[in-house]
Amino acid sequence: MKTTAPWAFEIQDLNSWYGGRQALQKISLLIPERRITAIIGPSGCGKSTFIRCLNRINDLIPGFRVEGRVLFKGQDIYDPTMDPVEIRFRVGMVFQKPNPFPKSIYDNVAYGPLIWGTRKGPALDTAVEESLKRAALWDEVKDMLHQSALTLSGGQQQRLCIARALAVEPEVLLLDEPCSALDPIATARIEELLLELKKSYTIIIVTHNMQQAARVSDVTGFFLLGELIEFAETKRIFTNPVDRRTEDYITGRFG
């Protein structure tokens, strides 16, 4: 794979289990900085499990276990001396279903800065405004910041969740099928936003929508039954896949 970018993540022989069931098998790959990496594959192929390993959010699931190394900027995030709280501060995440807190729009975005020590006041106001602008939501909500976030549409809620994640000023943004609950117009807005955000962030997006992967990503990984089948520049994956199974999947023969 040809790319000049340095690596955000270097993953080596990553295995993982939920209880006795193995979910990932010997995954090794390099994720470039300030690029969009797409992870595709049919349901249950381990793609969500994979990105949930990158911020250790799966630690919350009882019985979850990993082996192997996940180097983030050269540091193994599963090293016993690493604090998962700090990893999650540097690696933000947006989930499949928009999950705003039942609080105001402002309080949703302010949550991260507040727990990381920003005090209420002008600095916090600026942080909230900046994040909402970066998530392309500011113009729509600037006059209703103190309304409940639950009054927003699904697409707006998902952009709010992106703004909320950005407010912590992470280095990486993980997105786990962020558009699966959204209509095509809201989806297009999020994709536009991701292309804008990759100028400053490393983005990893899990998607079951191959067109989406083709439209937004620079590199793509194809997962099947917990294994990484193929990982390459997106253009190559979609025009000239090496593995037969990748070709079958992208041409719609299964999945």
Binding site: N55, I57, L60, V85, E86, I87, R88, F89, G92, M93, F95, K97, N99, P100, F101, P102, K103, Y111, G112, L114, I115, W116, C161, R164, A165, V168
Partner: peptide, 26 residues
């Protein structure tokens, strides 16, 4: 919903922060 806890943890909340600032208000 567990999704609210995950959102809180994904921003680097400690257990106490997730409980006190997200779960209890919710």
């Amino acid at each position: 919903p567990q999704s609210l806890r995950e959102a809180a943890y994904a921003m680097g909340s400690s257990k106490l922060q997730a409980a006190w600032r997200v779960v209890v208000p919710a």
